[in-house]
Design a protein around this nucleic acid. Structure first.
Lengths: 200, 200
DNA sequence: TGTACATCAGTGAACGCGCGTTCACTGATGTAC
DNA sequence: TGTACATCAGTGAACGCGCGTTCACTGATGTAC
């Protein structure tokens, strides 16, 4: 029996793989994506330093796995945030569109270190998986389709919708997070984006 | 006399502070902003590991110094790139505006690791210095003023010019760099931005 | 012009540390008979 | 129902490493007289 942080009632952990991922996320949240260490994870979970290697061949693949996991979390957070505005009206479409941006930014502000992991070059994007299959991207696409369908946005802007919206929101989140722009700039950005895209 | 990488003809180096910064930049370029080490810098410069501490109190302040240095480099790169399009015509204004975005992106692609250092949370932005005093920001502002003055952009978009343009370009650069968007998406982004801002 | 001396730049050995990963192992589990 | 045994999960000691930083030091420099 270990005297470490998390005690176990059996020799076998039960769900060590998941526990490692959760602990890793917790530590990244606290210490930043650099400064993650296999040893600290093991200690947190209450397991020997070598135990993790039954589930992950090395540190890099663990980090990559966490990256994927976090993209899923971000997507489900966005999903939840737009459920508040159902319907096909122009007004609902517009609210959903704006809410996607807000949810993205909220995530960044709430979890700066996780955001840095996802977009800071720590987990190189899987070559196989295209961004087009990413759940968040699909939601953005749908929101833009809805804007046009409901008459809330002129269709001439539609082809540039994804790249413009995603880039803007990503860039502003990043710049604000790192202190290059003030926090209140984000709503300005959304105002500007909607004005420029003719969303009304 | 040292047998290290860079030999010296005198006990005193002459310009060690600058040499340390240059070497650090070289190493960040090669290994990424995490993985920078004081010892490797010293070795590269051909100096003992402790020598650097005559110029920088610790590693963090060196990194912060490099951050500032790089923002200067980016700004001067942008300056140089827009010198090719002088004049007050709408056409020249538009070309300058677009060129600023291109230069920014080119920098990101050419120096991914330096870009990551600057915008990845490694050097927290100086609280004292406002983004409004940043040379790149001032150039962007000027470019937007010129767009309006030359009639190339409707003035109603002017208030959102900086935040929209900077966020877009930053976000797209970041996303492309980390493999979340394809490289050719950048020109699409600029097309979309200009279309949305009514730049013609 | 020559010398003493203060100042400064760089040395090199050492500190204590935490890291990723390997490896032979042992304790627990479940299945076949 | 009971036992032998294969399988699997986690151990713990060890590997070799590079790191940031300190500190008493020494070599070079330049200035005052």
């Amino acid at each position: 029996m270990s005297v470490l942080k998390v005690s176990r009632d059996s020799y076998h952990h039960g769900n060590l793989q998941e526990a490692i991922i959760q602990s890793a996320i917790k530590l990244i949240r606290k210490n930043g994506p650099d400064h993650l260490s296999m040893r600290e994870i093991s200690y947190e979970v209450g397991v020997s330093p070598s135990a993790a290697y039954h589930y992950f061949p090395d540190k890099d693949s663990l980090v990559r796995g966490i990256g994927q996991h976090l993209f899923g979390e971000l997507a489900s957070m966005i999903t939840k945030s737009i459920e508040k505005f159902p319907g096909t009206s122009a007004r609902a479409s517009k609210l959903r569109f704006r809410e996607i941006g807000r949810a993205y930014f909220k995530w960044a502000v709430k979890e700066p270190n996780l955001f840095r992991l996802m977009f800071g070059g720590f987990c190189s994007s899987d070559e196989q998986t295209s961004y087009k299959e990413d759940a968040s991207y699909i939601m953005l696409k749908k929101a833009l389709d809805d804007l046009v369908a409901s008459g809330a946005m002129p269709s001439k802007f539609r082809p540039y919708g994804e790249i413009l919206a995603w880039s803007c929101v990503q860039g502003a989140s990043n710049l604000i997070l790192e202190g290059h722009l003030p926090k209140n700039a984000f709503e300005d950005l959304l105002d500007g984006l909607e004005l420029a895209l003719g969303v009304k």
